[in-house]
């Protein structure tokens, strides 16, 4: 193994990690703010990937046009769910949100399977070529994923930290009843959080589509790693989920040098178990 390979995998790990962070941050936000376990989150990611593919198939000229279309589609589906079947579920016990969202995820998966078939789709890289980073020649698209993903993660963080909605969101996370009593429209906060989480998952899926391929079960495949990331970062901790995402991305990428993908997953799981032994509350302090 050369130092170059190690460097390349470290950089790849960062691109994996950004995608994991995009998914995990939505899960952790939904939990931290409204006690909502979203088992369909991986399927929103899957829809993001299919959205890009479908846009390109029906004749959208460029990936960079298809990406916002796909994200808008996932956001629309997420909001539709929030205002229809999920509306009575918000505020219920974790078991109820878990079952409802699992049911929805299963229906989404089967719907995609029935509509587009079981075979995986591929889309070409929107930008080809490589850039030279010091000693490393790195695929341009992966660099784009890292930059775009990180920018969106930071943008979402600014939204939570700096805007009025952000203040409301954090207030609801701390004390829902008190916040509602102070006149904050809690249902609208739920809408914003659910929409934000759905959009982040959709972006993750859309960005990952050229890298990982597209199939009905890619959401179910990624949800395991996403939950591991969420637990490592501390359930409900936004920054933790980003740090955890990058960490697990590196584990998977470095593991890929020596291991099969599933074995690398197990290393990620092992990391979580060790962490639980030494720091049961997660890497960073959990939100509550």
């Amino acid at each position: 193994m050369t130092a170059e390979l190690l460097l390349l995998q470290l950089a790849n790990g960062l691109s994996f990690g950004v995608i994991f962070a995009l998914i995990a941050s939505g899960i952790t936000l939904m939990w931290g703010i409204m006690d909502f376990i979203n088992m369909a989150h991986g399927d929103l990611y899957m829809l993001g990937a299919y959205g890009v593919w479908l846009s390109l198939v029906v004749g959208v000229a460029s990936f960079w046009l298809a990406l916002p279309l796909a994200v808008a589609g996932v956001l629309a589906i997420g909001l539709l769910l929030r205002f229809t079947v999920l509306r009575p579920v918000f505020g219920r016990a974790p078991l109820q949100t878990l079952l409802a969202t699992y049911g929805i995820g299963l229906i989404l998966q089967q719907g995609v399977l029935a509509t587009f078939g079981p075979f995986s789709k591929e889309i070409p890289f929107p930008v080809t070529g490589q850039v030279t980073l010091g000693p490393l020649r790195y695929p341009t698209y992966r660099l784009v994923v890292i930059v775009v993903g990180l920018a969106l993660i930071v943008a979402a963080w600014v939204l939570i930290q700096r805007t009025t909605y952000g203040i409301w969101i954090r207030a609801v996370a701390q004390d829902r009843t008190m916040t509602a009593a102070l006149g904050v429209p809690v249902p609208r906060v739920y809408t914003v959080v659910f929409g934000l989480g759905s959009a982040l998952a959709g972006i993750g899926g859309a960005l990952a589509a050229p890298l990982f391929g597209i199939g009905p079960t890619i959401g179910a495949d990624v949800i395991l790693l996403a939950f591991i990331v969420v637990m490592i970062g501390g359930l409900g901790n936004y920054v933790g989920s980003v740090v955890g995402g990058v960490l697990i991305g590196e584990v998977i990428a470095l593991g890929a040098i020596w291991l099969q993908p599933t074995e690398a997953y197990l290393v990620a799981l092992g990391l979580l178990l060790v962490l639980l032994l030494v720091r049961p509350q997660g890497l960073l302090r959990a939100a509550r």
């Binding site: 079947v85 009575p88 579920v89 219920r92 109820q96 079952l99 409802a100 699992y102 049911g103 929805i104 995820g105 299963l106 229906i107 089967q110």
Partner: peptide, 10 residues
């Protein structure tokens, strides 16, 4: 199966 899982909650 998915619909039943969802309907149970609703």
């Amino acid at each position: 199966v998915g619909a039943v899982t969802l309907l149970v909650v609703l």
